[in-house]
Design a protein around this nucleic acid. Structure first.
Length: 488
RNA sequence: GCCCCUAUCGUCUAGUGGACCAGGACGCGGCCCUUUCAAGGCCAAAACUGGGGUUCGAAUCCCCAUAGGGGCACCA
């Protein structure tokens, strides 16, 4: 396959969410696979909707996911600039070409009039469509009014009859009756092009070979093809990707409909403790298949297996359980040092400052026990806190008096103090023996010791914890527990 | 209201006319392992939306119905 030139062309109007990120991902995969280029282009022709900071978050999100671009607004490239506002003059030129060749006309209707027409049509249960008033104007008359300073938009002149067939690679031919299409606006009265014109011009100018975009564009797809044909340009390969639906399956995915532990925003997923690898694997599999038994694939592995023919045309419900599963699995695959490094910011955020050495020893202990990086704080935070505060009821042996529990704790402390080498393997045997001599089940006894030493009822294996916590601290925490259970 | 798209286990999907009494993963249930919690291993339940065609043969092709989704701006 020839090197593909692909692009991700978001508008800077909101946050990067998994729908957009997945579109970017598929584009990147195709570029990687074919040794082509992935281009980031900003569709900011609607100046009113631009949101401050959106572009920055967008780029940060893509970078975090490892979806790097070879040409873009920040790094430039052979077709700079990569923001559409800055390309205004280019679209103007092309619009005039369409005007000159009779594929477009000037429209002097005001926004207010258009609004009224539309409302009347809707009231009459008709499809809202431009009524063609200015299409009937002679070019000479239109020229005169424009020269007189009357504001106008430029509309595309659609074929009055017949049908248009456009080819989508994932759905096949799509045919629409031209009478159902509208003489849509190419250039606004402020002189800036609308998406439809701007995107087609840019795709052409930038040599885009494949357009992978969301299904929200399927409705205007024939329009875009018509523009390209009016210019006589070569068409890219079109792939309209399926949408993500809410977990409930009712409607397009949105911010609502997810719990506080979930998010559809890439930036929030990162904050929640998800790995970019897991997010990529997860997004990739909702809407495509990679012909592999293994579901957890790196970007390079996915690129090698990516196939435009395996894109799924139907909508997919977002499934957060699967993300959790993938994240846990990716965490378990990480090298210890890698995981330790990734988990550190989450401890810091919780106000803990693990020393590197201890963190490295502790990491294998929580590695199989966490789903998100953030979980490590709950599971292993006690290693880095100066003191623990167990719940008194966790210190009591079920069915026994507080005195007996205290005695057991004390016996453990004495026994542990006598162990010559402070290693978890050496700690376990005497404690098991002690449990037996106290007439307790090991699990019961260990549960109390766990609460005393870790302050938690759930923790990594007890003796590993003791080893890392150290002899002195372990014994001190046992003594504290005795006091908590009651006076001697 | 109009246009377009889609339709396999609860969910993500495999399946591209015979190799399918439909395979995998998540989730759910059970068992094993086990000091808690996990992880890990094993086992199980669970689907071709309905109806018509085409064909020797249909989950796969066609039509209709139904359901779901997307779109119908001087937004993208």
């Amino acid at each position: 396959m020839k090197p593909a030139r692909v692009r991700f062309a978001p508008s800077p109007t909101g946050r990067l969410h998994i729908g957009g990120a997945r579109t970017a991902l598929y584009n990147v995969l195709l570029a990687k696979q074919t040794g082509g280029q992935f281009i980031l282009r900003i569709e900011d022709t609607d100046t009113k909707r631009t949101v401050a900071g959106a572009l920055e978050e967008l780029q940060a999100g893509l970078r975090w996911l490892g979806l790097d671009w070879q040409e873009g607004p920040d790094i430039g490239g052979p077709h700079a600039p990569y923001t559409q506002q800055a390309r205004k003059a280019l679209y103007q030129r092309y619009a005039e070409e369409l005007l000159a060749r009779g594929h477009a006309y000037r429209c002097f209707c005001t926004a207010e009039r258009l609004q009224q027409v539309r409302e009347a049509q809707q009231k009459a249960k008709q499809s809202p469509r431009y009524d063609g008033t200015c299409r009937a104007l002679s070019p000479v008359e239109a020229e005169r009014r424009a020269a007189a300073g009357e504001p106008f938009t430029i509309r595309f002149k659609l074929p009055k009859d017949g049908a248009t067939t456009a080819h989508d690679h994932v759905r096949g031919d799509i045919t629409v009756d031209n009478t159902t299409l509208d003489d849509f606006i190419l250039v606004k009265s402020d002189g800036l092009a609308l998406y439809h014109l701007a995107a087609m011009v840019d795709d052409h100018e930038m040599g885009i070979s494949h357009v992978l975009r969301g299904t929200e564009w399927l409705g205007t797809f024939p329009l875009h093809v018509l523009i390209i044909r009016a210019f006589g340009w070569e068409e890219p390969v079109w792939c309209h990707l399926s949408v993500f639906l809410k977990p409930s399956g009712k409607g397009k995915m949105s911010k609502r409909d997810v719990t506080s532990e979930q998010s559809i925003y890439v930036a929030e997923l990162e904050e929640l403790g998800y790995l970019s690898e897991a997010v990529n694997s997860w997004m990739a599999l909702m809407g495509a298949s990679f012909g592999a038994e293994e579901e957890l694939l790196s970007l390079d592995e996915m690129a090698a297996r990516f196939d435009l023919g395996n894109l799924n045309p139907s909508a997919a419900r977002v499934n957060f359980e699967k993300l959790d599963d993938f994240n846990g699995k990716w965490i378990r695959r990480l090298a210890v040092d890698d995981l330790a490094g990734r988990v550190r910011p989450f401890f810091e955020k919780a106000g803990l400052h693990p020393d590197p050495d201890t963190l490295r020893r502790v990491t294998p202990l929580f590695q199989p026990r966490i789903v998100t990086l953030d979980d490590a704080v709950e599971m292993a935070g006690f290693f880095f806190r100066p003191a623990v505060s167990p719940r008194p009821e966790d210190l009591l042996i079920k069915g026994q008096t507080p005195e007996q529990s205290r005695a057991a704790l004390q016996a453990a402390r004495t026994g542990l103090a006598a162990v010559p080498e402070w290693q978890h393997a050496a700690l376990e045997a005497p404690m098991r023996a002690l449990a037996e001599s106290l007439g307790l089940k090991a699990g019961q006894f260990f549960g109390v010791l766990r609460a005393a030493v870790t302050g938690q009822s759930v923790s990594p294996p007890l003796f590993e914890c003791m080893e890392v916590v150290g002899r002195e601290t372990t014994l001190a925490r046992l003594a504290q527990a005795e006091a908590l259970v009651g006076p001697a």
